[in-house]
């Protein structure tokens, strides 16, 4: 296998200086982190702890991590990855709470006898100030996970088209959710 597989396939978001390209970074931090995650998943899903299964798990997680180790991460710095995930863990409970509130709202709409008068489906558009693809992906998925709003399209300039089912669920966009994600990704 070619020795600079990772550097040639790595993240295109942050340009690295060309002097680093010559050095083969085979066992970089993204490889190690994804290897650990994959191996933990292997142990959970297999549930057997004899030597044969553990060896199979080691081999297969190493292969998968070598091929797709840098798909999940936007940075190669272990410290920034860790800090990003730490901030993400503060964002996810808030998102779950919002999802729960919006679920109750959609339940109210569904079970209301005069539902057709309450709903007002429309497509709203707004410009987001998030720059990187990763944060836009997280934002679009958060909008889609919150009931009442579904992301129809995001174009390259950061313009979101969102289908919302009635006025109260579409109003708070982009609003607080975008602020939180911008805080998570430090933008």
């Amino acid at each position: 296998m070619d020795k600079d597989y990772h550097t040639s396939f790595g993240n295109n978001l942050s340009p690295r200086n060309p002097s680093k390209l010559s050095r083969p970074k085979r066992f970089n931090i993204t490889f190690i982190i994804s290897f650990l995650i994959l191996f933990a998943l292997w142990i959970i899903f297999s549930g057997r702890f004899d030597g044969f299964h553990i060896t199979l798990g080691l081999i297969s997680s190493a292969i998968v991590a070598a091929f797709s180790g840098d798909l999940m991460f936007t940075s190669r710095n272990a410290r920034s990855i860790f800090l990003l995930w730490l901030r993400m863990t503060t964002y996810i409970p808030w998102l779950l709470y919002q999802i729960f509130l919006a679920n109750l709202h959609v339940m109210y709409l569904v079970l209301h006898p005069r539902m057709m008068e309450l709903i007002n489906p429309k497509i709203i558009q707004f410009d987001s100030r998030l720059k990187s693809e990763y944060s836009r992906m997280v934002f679009a998925n958060s909008i889609t996970l919150t009931p009442g709003t579904i992301t129809v399209n995001v174009n390259a300039l950061g313009r979101f088209s969102v289908h919302c089912i009635d006025d109260p669920s579409g109003q708070p966009l982009p609003g607080k959710m975008e602020e939180k994600i911008a805080h998570v990704f430090k933008e």
């Binding site: 999802i99 729960f100 919006a102 679920n103 959609v106 339940m107 569904v110 539902m115 057709m116 709903i119 489906p121 889609t144 996970l145 919150t146 009931p147 009442g148 579904i150 289908h163 089912i165």
Partner: peptide
């Protein structure tokens, strides 16, 4: 719900919850 765009809202999200 009246059309398929609005039907996606309960189908995708309430089932997940």
């Amino acid at each position: 719900f009246p059309d398929f765009y609005t039907r996606l809202h309960p189908a995708g999200k309430l089932d997940t919850a």
